[in-house]
Design a protein around this nucleic acid. Structure first.
Lengths: 145, 145
DNA sequence: GCAAATTGATTCGTGTTCAAACAATGTGAA
DNA sequence: TTCACATTGTTTGAACACGAATCAATTTGC
């Protein structure tokens, strides 16, 4: 647990440093990166790619639009949807900014041997599986009573 | 990264379930638990035990005091400090509430073999070390300009 | 013994996160 | 066709989480 906590904290600290330097928080940078990687998309799609609640992403996108890095365009084929895309300034900024949060973790992994990475992946996968199963149980348990 | 994300998310989901059931969020339960474990202490101490910024813990404690689960007493030996302690209601509630957030992770670990747990611990420790070192570098780098 | 630095708690401003509720739009079945 | 239902994006309200600034109390340095 302490290690998990410290990993999250290290990522947060990294995010703060990036924010100081580039005026972008971790989630903001991450959103830009996803838009750059996978082209224009709707808000729901972006939220799914980021494993976040759509209502959360609205705020992140709001701030990016305010900064002129992302454009919200109407989607002619479905008027419920908005098409999110980088502005020229957005892609420009993305070019010389660091990897988004994950980058640090990736960098961290590069300092480990292949076997270590494989072990880590295997054990976290197991742990996640057990935890998510636990969670289902808890949901049913709490729902019952 | 996905696994890390999923672990955090699983913990969040668990926290939500607990909140629905007991009216306590994860951090609140965690604070109660630390107070129960390590007796009365100042806010800074509690913040350190929770790996959180003191300013964050103020809010958590506020809500616990409001619920009548924690008392803020003056410390006669140092009048800057406040002594945080469980109220009787607080310890009562803690008795039949589930393990705080970590509990789920702990439970998860119990589903793994000793070797798996050891591997997991070793690899996360390595990863944390690399990430924190990275972070120091980044701080200096960004500080330089 | 008193000024200066430090420490502990708090407040403030910004940003992230979720669930719940809502409006607008699209879809499918009676 | 029409009406119930689903989907998409948004708003709202609560709780975290951080750093910076503030304030009182304490410790230090001279």
């Amino acid at each position: 647990m302490r290690n998990l906590r410290r990993m999250v904290k290290a990522l947060e600290a990294y995010s703060m440093a990036v924010e100081k330097r580039y005026g972008l928080t971790g989630p903001q940078l991450w959103a830009l990166w996803e838009l750059s990687r996978s082209g224009p998309m709707g808000l729901k799609d972006l939220a799914e790619r980021m494993y976040l609640n759509p209502s959360t992403v609205v705020g992140v996108v709001d701030r990016l639009v305010e900064k002129g890095l992302v454009a919200r365009d109407p989607d002619p084929s479905d008027r419920r949807r908005v098409s999110l895309d980088l502005t020229p300034r957005g892609s420009e900024l993305l070019k010389d900014s660091p990897h988004p949060a994950q980058g640090q973790l990736l960098h961290g992994l590069q300092g480990m041997s292949l076997k270590e990475v494989q072990d880590l992946h295997a054990s976290t996968a197991t742990l996640v599986k057990v935890m998510e199963a636990e969670n289902l149980d808890a949901t049913f348990f709490f729902a019952d009573g």
